[in-house]
Write a protein that binds this DNA or RNA. Sequence first.
DNA 1: TTGAAAGCGCTAACAA
DNA 2: TTGTTAGCGCTTTCAA
Lengths: 339, 339
Amino acid sequence: MSQLGRPATIEDVARIAGVSRAAVSKVIRNAYGVSPGMRERVSAAIDELDYRPSVAARAMRGSSFTLGIETPGSANHFFAKILDGAAAALVGTRYQLIIAPAEDGEREGYRALEALVDRQVDGLVAVSPLIASEWLERLATRLPVVMLGRHDESVAYDTVVGNDELGARLAIEHLLDLAHTRIAHLTRSEFVTIPALGGPHGVRLAVYNAIMQERGLEAWVCRTGPTNHDAYESAIELLDRPDRPSAVFAAHDQIALGVLKAMAELGLTPDDVSVVGYDDVEIASHPGIGLTTVNQSGTFMGATAVEMLIERIDGRKEVRRVVTTPRLVARTSSRRLKN
Amino acid sequence: MSQLGRPATIEDVARIAGVSRAAVSKVIRNAYGVSPGMRERVSAAIDELDYRPSVAARAMRGSSFTLGIETPGSANHFFAKILDGAAAALVGTRYQLIIAPAEDGEREGYRALEALVDRQVDGLVAVSPLIASEWLERLATRLPVVMLGRHDESVAYDTVVGNDELGARLAIEHLLDLAHTRIAHLTRSEFVTIPALGGPHGVRLAVYNAIMQERGLEAWVCRTGPTNHDAYESAIELLDRPDRPSAVFAAHDQIALGVLKAMAELGLTPDDVSVVGYDDVEIASHPGIGLTTVNQSGTFMGATAVEMLIERIDGRKEVRRVVTTPRLVARTSSRRLKN
DNA sequence: TTGAAAGCGCTAACAA
DNA sequence: TTGTTAGCGCTTTCAA
């Protein structure tokens, strides 16, 4: 790592280059007021010593060049997409990404976000956090925050969110168009759908309830746990009985995959039960799966969130809000109701 | 997040508690030699101010309580599993995880690892890094390192690795047992399979070549790019011709999924072409996929790597090496050769 | 058992 | 244009 048997410091570079520490600092920050000659000598010394600034020391005086992202557990491939996009947007910038996964617990989101703040991140993106918005607002006054996936509007933080209102409508009306009336909605726990949190599943659930009521149909809401296996088990329970629904609107693709698996297990085909998911994760389009779903680009959302975050760090003042438009992708898992 | 309009510092806590900064430091570190009374008062002040130690400041004097993990891009769900396991192993410890994704480029691995080192991580796990082992050895003399997925042995860093030798043998002999002889191996680029790097794909390729030669069969190695779409396209090219192989051993499940998709596209069934993957990602067991593959637990490997890392940070001196045993999971994508 | 003080590597205000 | 200097918040001797 260097000739010295320990990482080189700015002091070492200054000594070798025969200049002051401040001069070195200016060179590495591309600050104003350094002569070409000085830049030259300092750069040479940096190369010679293989010097790398200590992020910790820099963080104490200003930036850590680290961005934080808080996400729900990675059981859902959609979040992997978001991460992918976020990571891609970082390429070529000076920032690194630190990830704090939060499970579903009441306190989990706070824990994860605090861990990020403790690490002096220069900004952070929170993915559908199960957190009171006042808390987030307060956080956002201290450092740039981008909220991804929730619908609540804020004057303090930027937002990237899909139009779940529209997406859910697309999904449900698709099933209605296929003549289904006994449509169940399989979604996550009560906590995850609390309307006040503005999370996507709360919105999708509300749209479901509204449309069913509108049409005079009976709402049929089922809940399931966080893992993919939970979804499978809940689906078995839902479908293994004579009065089963003829269609299921799953809150997201990972749940829909569990439904499909349960159907195969029970010997049910799309002619028996239609399934629609949400997200359009990659595997949904695989011929063996053929899941009808609502496409939204996690990669784009993740990348946009990071770009917005960097804009803010770089000084943008006004709050921005990006709403992406989902679209229905009909595949083989949804069929017209027989007879 | 405190009464002061700025984050509380150790100084603030000391003032409120009426003690010295050193005393506070001792309390938060559970250090030796603090009276119950002192502990009491300090804790009260900490709670009152909602004090959280600055990770940056601590990092300058000692630990950052941050672990780094360097992984290939997340296009492969197997890495998501590893991350899951790693994150799970962190729960209840004081550590956070910082992730540095590295794409396939020559310099990418170094870049990612350096970003981690710059951030003063207390230790790091490198997932199949495309990095010279001498470089890693040198790194490992400066901080604890766990290498996950590579086969090269080191006296400096711990290792968690699957027995790819056995796994590949299981996969290929399974196809041989099904009477296949025209078996192609679809793997990643030359760079990824360089034997000197000790990566899993290099080993699987070597085993493939050895077995084919042993049996007097013709080796048929195809290469593909990093994305899932690359795999699909390469598979189309491989299978869309009369002299196609009767079986494909894919270097990992994500590639195998591309092959399956290509087959569906070309109207081919498992009776025409058998496919075996590697990793047993979750979707492989889905009824619509039914991919025969070699199971290895990414979750376990990721968790083990983090546990070993923490052990080392806590003082273990001797190097450890954990080798996991893979097992074949036969599903519907592989069939006995017809006539 | 407690506290004073030095210093980790860097940045930024100010002086030269 | 360059250098001097005063901290940032913490840990860690070393004395008291």
